[in-house]
Design a protein around this nucleic acid. Structure first.
Lengths: 212, 212
DNA sequence: ACCTGAACACCGTTCAAGT
DNA sequence: ACCTGAACACCGTTCAAGT
């Protein structure tokens, strides 16, 4: 008979959150390439196959991490000054991405069919609408700003060509390309903060200028 | 004794170029994820280990492909009109990336310490200098334009969030986020060509506007 | 409900051979 | 010089068991 159950319920060893946390540990310590069912399970002192009870394979694991990171965004409350508000949203995006620089490519490249991803989109659209953009125009502007931000952050976490951080000045100077030789000194330098500010301010300025 | 050699020299089965070509075949047919020493070797009718005679492991294989694609860029000759020239350079970059859409993330994210990557950089700097930018300013502008272009193209080949191609209009409308509900109709549409033009023109316009 | 043992079909890579 | 056989240390994943 299937009557009363015996034995303690035994609290589970794993949870979605503990798995996500362990994955971030692995990423911070050894990079995205080191993430695997086995390495994450090892960090939890458990067998790799156990993860399948909480997460939908390796791809689902990475989705869970991406969703967790997007959920950690803390969006600023709007002040009414469009330039300031757009910049503040971009900053909060960047802050969150740089908390786990090695994990940033996940947030910046994985497309998630999740409501988590939509809050920042809504925030940007709201600011643009308040600044006088039509709905269609606001969507174009959102996408342009997002492209610039993503391109900039990918470069900042070394997941996109920087032209500078890698190439040594003497290599550039020896290239024989005239404009490049001229600029070698500046190409060889790369100040992440300054480059971020320049790119994002220019993009935001362009959008606001178009709004008149 | 080590005298005269006997037997025909036998022309090699493989070459760096044939390997790169086979890799592109695999990528076009099954995507970057399907690239492996074994799958590429299979496409060539050869053993996986043979590739090591021509290419430095899997990473070297991907570098070779990236370098090949960058080498295929055909840069336009400058006309003296900065807006037109910058746009033409961006277009040639995009054309090359879209020849193998599945391979595009390679060119857009791998950083290559190769002279091949420097020709387009020189071209952009030359146009900016001619338009009156100082060397340091030109480098900042180059990097901003590159970030926008890379972000845009990554999205175009579905390697970055698009907010639209994936999310269905009804999902967006049901999100409860007011600005997003308002724009749901436009967010659900995504015209690659139009979005590319909007983003790149806005970025180029911003740079030229700053140059006065 | 949650964890694991056995098992499967994969990987990239080295190194000593073969021609 | 170039290709391969044998071998190694890895992967992700399924499924039937155990508690």
């Amino acid at each position: 008979m299937t009557g009363t159950r015996r034995g303690r319920p035994r609290t589970p060893l794993l949870s979605r959150e503990s798995i996500v946390a362990a994955t971030l540990q692995v990423i911070d310590a050894e990079g995205t390439a080191a993430v695997g069912m086995r390495s994450v399970a090892r960090a939890l002192g458990v067998d790799a196959k156990s993860l399948y009870n909480h997460v939908d394979g390796k791809d689902g694991l990475l989705d869970a991490v991406t969703e967790h990171l997007l959920g950690g965004l803390d969006l600023p409350s709007p002040t009414g000054d469009a330039r300031h508000d757009l910049r503040a949203i971009a900053d909060s995006f960047r802050d969150q991405a740089l908390k786990h620089p090695q994990a940033a490519p996940l947030v910046l490249t994985r497309q998630l069919a999740s409501l988590r991803a939509l809050a920042p989109v809504d925030a940007v659209l709201a600011v643009l609408r308040d600044a006088g953009a039509g709905t269609e125009e606001a969507v174009h502007m959102l996408r342009m700003l997002l492209a610039t931000l993503i391109g900039t952050l990918l470069r900042e976490v070394s997941a996109a060509p920087a032209f500078g951080s890698n190439d040594r000045e003497d290599t550039l100077a020896a290239s024989g390309l005239p404009a490049l030789v001229d600029a070698a000194e500046h190409l060889a330098r790369f100040d992440r903060e300054a480059e971020y500010e320049y790119a994002v301010d220019l993009a935001i300025g362009a959008v606001l200028h178009r709004l008149g």
